[in-house]
Write a protein that binds this DNA or RNA. Structure first.
Lengths: 195, 195
DNA sequence: TAGCCATCTTAACCAACGTCAATGAAAGCC
DNA sequence: GGCTTTCATTGACGTTGGTTAAGATGGCTA
């Protein structure tokens, strides 16, 4: 029995598709391309050209960054989230690695598909752009939190907003997401239990 | 004598206007709106609707975030940089404060002006969008550095890429940008001198 | 000039994280 | 079953940043 993530999770927004009619949504469904990826598969690696972008329909994707042979987890993406800001196209290169933590069902979009979708649903383009700007600002916010909160506060925040992550990914990767070592997360948890 | 910032500064990109013709650039100049702001003036405050966005032509703007009555500096914007990701419009609210560190000359764009500019220079829209996506990815990168580097490394990086900042803003704000207290920055500098 | 204010530095002490190493627990494999 | 591998925990110890408080410096103003 898994605790669902809070609707106030940092990445949850008003569903951008609400603005579409029933019919438009149905059409969108016929257009979208779904792909399965096995646990451990990479969606992209740092430095590669980004020709597609991905939304998680089912499963969990982790992005991370390498520095001195050490992994630094940037984010976890689960059901309904788009991996990275949805950015792809010529001259765009992946700034990080993205790997499936579980078997995943992904909604994949490339440049051509995007053009087709926007041609069929012109209103969607503006919606997506606004969505992207919102996400960008939320990212700013996240950076702010990252900077001003202690590891303990960040842990509490993650636990409150995305509890299900703790059942889906190993703790040492959560530690890396919080910006601390696994040993420190262990002690932090112990400290919190005692008080 | 001020040391110019490195061309490899985190926010420097290929000039998006290179792709325009001489003529188009000239037209752009006639369209843009410049405003002067005095040192200490705010461009926006957290929570306010963002109806304009700003590019720094001359001067320096600092964005920061409030948390428990304490300021956390998010970034410094100087000549040629756009304050925040260039985002404005209905339903967009400022996630932070933006204040002029010096008397500034700013390039101001609102929704209406943006429409006019894009109507005159249709190619610019795609260029700006691509630029925005690049910036978004660079932001991801920055978050990665923020997470994986020690304060000392971040200090060295800032000193290497944006040395002029150290002559333009007080050190306690740089400390706040690096995510440490002014006293710690003092000690850190002393440590580095001795080694 | 004296006084005030903002900024930077230094010192002492404490708390928290990193490192290294060892131990346990759980899962997967032969 | 026994083995290995992976992951979480614990302890000892060093380093570093936060806190508090005290000066030092320089600029500005009454």
């Amino acid at each position: 029995m898994s605790i669902p993530d809070s609707p106030h999770a940092p990445r949850s927004l008003t569903d951008p598709l609400q603005a579409l009619t029933e019919q438009e949504r149905a059409e969108l469904l016929t257009l979208q391309r779904l792909e399965r990826r096995a646990k451990g598969e990479y969606l992209f690696r740092a430095g590669q050209p980004l020709e597609r972008y991905y939304a998680v329909v089912e499963g969990c994707v982790r992005t991370y960054h390498l520095h001195d042979d050490e992994e630094f987890t940037l984010d976890f993406y689960t059901e309904g989230q788009t991996v990275l800001p949805a950015v792809a196209g010529k001259g765009i290169f992946a700034p990080s690695f993205a790997v499936c933590m579980e078997d995943c069902l992904l909604n994949v979009t490339d440049e051509q598909l995007e053009r087709e979708v926007f041609a069929r649903l012109p209103r969607l383009k503006d919606i997506c752009q606004q969505q992207s700007e919102q996400l960008q600002l939320m990212h700013q916010q996240e950076l702010a939190v990252q900077k001003s909160a202690s590891p303990e506060q960040r842990y509490a925040h993650l636990l409150a907003t995305r509890p299900s992550l703790f059942e889906r990914v190993p703790q040492y990767q959560i530690a890396s997401y919080l910006g601390i070592k696994p040993e420190s997360l262990s002690r932090l948890r112990k400290r919190l239990q005692q008080n």
